[in-house]
Amino acid sequence: MHKLLVLYPEPTDRAAFEEYYRGTHLPLCQQLPGVRSISIALGICEPGAGPYFAIFEATFDTEADCHAALASPEGRAVEADVPNYATGGATVIDYTLEPHAL
């Protein structure tokens, strides 16, 4: 399983971020080819209390699927949309999970 993680620092306007993110950006993300699941967390800390305001996580079957999705027209549209709401920018990390038995 491969994950795409996006970390968002504190935006200029939390309410504007959330409205745009939920109404415009997430529907774009849902169109990524090969995406298996999407999870988000918004407002994960009080303003000024931590480095991040929001987290996005998408799951793909493989690293190749993730990279193909990002390179697709849908992936380029998602990337081009980020400056429309993420006034603090975004940090993108992708990685393959290694299963570990308990």
Rank of each mutant, 00 (worst) to 15 (best):
R14A: 13
Y8G: 07
I55R: 07
E10N: 04
T24W: 09
Y20T: 12
Y8M: 05
L7E: 05
P47M: 04
E19Q: 15
N84I: 04
L5C: 13
Q30L: 15
P83T: 01
D94P: 05
P9R: 00
P9G: 07
V35P: 01
V92E: 11
S37Q: 12
E18C: 13
P51T: 11
G75K: 01
D81Y: 05
V92G: 10
A15W: 07
P73E: 05
S39F: 12
G88M: 05
Y8S: 00
S37P: 02
Y20C: 02
R22K: 15
D13M: 07
A58M: 13
L42P: 01
I93C: 08
D61K: 06
Y20I: 09
I93P: 02
H25A: 01
D94N: 13
L70N: 09
G88K: 03
R76G: 04
A86N: 00
G23K: 13
T87A: 08
H67F: 11
G34M: 06
A54M: 01
H25N: 04
G89R: 09
D81I: 03
V35T: 10
L7H: 03
T91I: 14
D94A: 12
E19L: 12
D13R: 00
T96D: 15
T59F: 03
Y52A: 05
Y21L: 05
Y52V: 02
H2P: 00
A86I: 00
E98D: 14
R22W: 09
F60A: 05
L70G: 02
S37I: 02
G50C: 04
D61P: 00
P73Y: 04
A90T: 08
V6M: 14
R22G: 10
C66D: 03
A80F: 05
Q30I: 12
E10S: 02
P47N: 08
G88P: 00
P51E: 14
P33G: 10
T96S: 10
K3R: 15
G75H: 02
P47V: 06
L42R: 03
P73S: 08
P11R: 02
E19M: 12
P73K: 06
P83L: 12
P47E: 06
G23P: 05
E98V: 15
L32D: 00
D61L: 07
Y95I: 09
L26V: 15
E57V: 10
L7Y: 03
Y52F: 15
A41F: 07
Y8D: 01
L5H: 14
G43M: 08
I44D: 03
A80M: 10
P27N: 04
G89D: 10
V92A: 15
A80L: 03
V6F: 06
A64G: 08
P27V: 09
A54C: 11
M1L: 15
I55K: 03
P73T: 06
E74A: 15
A77T: 08
D13T: 05
V35G: 00
D65T: 09
L28Q: 00
L32S: 03
M1N: 11
A58V: 03
Y95C: 08
H25M: 09
A15I: 12
T87R: 03
Y20M: 00
H100W: 14
I93E: 05
E79D: 15
F17K: 01
S37R: 09
R36Y: 02
F60M: 08
P33Q: 06
A77M: 05
I44Q: 10
V35Q: 01
A15H: 11
L102K: 14
A77V: 10
G50I: 02
